[in-house]
Amino acid sequence: MARITFIGFDADDTLWQNETFFRLTQERFESLLADHADPAHLHDRLLAAERRNVGHYGFGVKGFVLSMIETAIEVTEGRVQASVVAELMAAGREMLAHPIELLPHARDAVVAAADHGARVVLITKGDLLDQERKLAQSGLGDLFHGVEIVSNKTADVYARLFMRHGVAAEGAMMLGNSLKSDVLPVLETGGWGVHVPHHLTWALEHAEPPHGHERFCELSDLGGLLPLLNRVDP
């Protein structure tokens, strides 16, 4: 097999917490609209709005807030109070300003990847300004050889990214919490896909694990990266 010369890291819920804050804000949303619908109904309506809107607004807090507002308008049949809309907007601003909480072994894993001799790149999708803010606050920025903030993660996007960095897909490895975005499309290019599960996963990122694929690996946390590299690329 080709030596691993490129290691990509997802950001949200791989290196630092993210989905936790979305869930807390969604609970706030459900509380604000409790007089109009039960939590399960609001959850389903909000998810449907996110599914409709992700192609227009992209991934991240801003699209989430717009989807909450749209859902609030729908379930109240246009009678949602301005104070509720204002509180949802305030919740979004709080999310955009929330301090970064690194996940276990995040820094050590990035350092281990670089020490292995690979080009180490952060590959994340979402709002440009928010992702740049989180990276700056994480204290990890100087550890990466490059940063790629993309609108979506598909096999074509990864293939172009690998080409731009001068690496063959067979020598690339990607680590992330999303099977749909971080693992399956990289396997499709011929690279290594390493799943690092987070206890919370957005429903739109759900996919089934490709058990049996020779380039698929799963780690309980980022602390397992160095042993994995020593095993598959000694």
Rank of each mutant, 00 (worst) to 15 (best):
R3P: 09
I4S: 02
I4F: 01
G8Y: 04
F9Q: 03
D10K: 02
D12V: 00
T25Y: 06
T25G: 09
Q26A: 13
E27H: 13
F29M: 10
S31Q: 15
D35R: 13
R51F: 09
R52I: 09
G55W: 07
G58M: 03
V61C: 07
K62I: 15
F64W: 11
F64E: 01
I69A: 09
A82M: 12
S83F: 07
V85N: 03
H98G: 04
E101A: 08
A106M: 04
R107E: 12
A109D: 01
G117F: 07
R119M: 10
V121F: 05
I123M: 11
K125R: 06
L129G: 14
D130P: 02
Q137F: 10
Q137S: 13
G141H: 05
E148V: 15
E148L: 12
V150Q: 06
V150S: 07
V150E: 05
T154Q: 07
T154C: 09
G166L: 08
G171I: 01
A172V: 03
M173H: 02
L175A: 05
G176L: 02
N177M: 03
D182W: 00
V183C: 05
L184W: 01
L184S: 03
V196M: 03
P197D: 08
T201V: 15
T201P: 01
W202Q: 04
A203K: 13
L204H: 11
E214I: 10
C217G: 06
L219D: 10
S220T: 15
S220Y: 12
L229Y: 01
L229H: 03
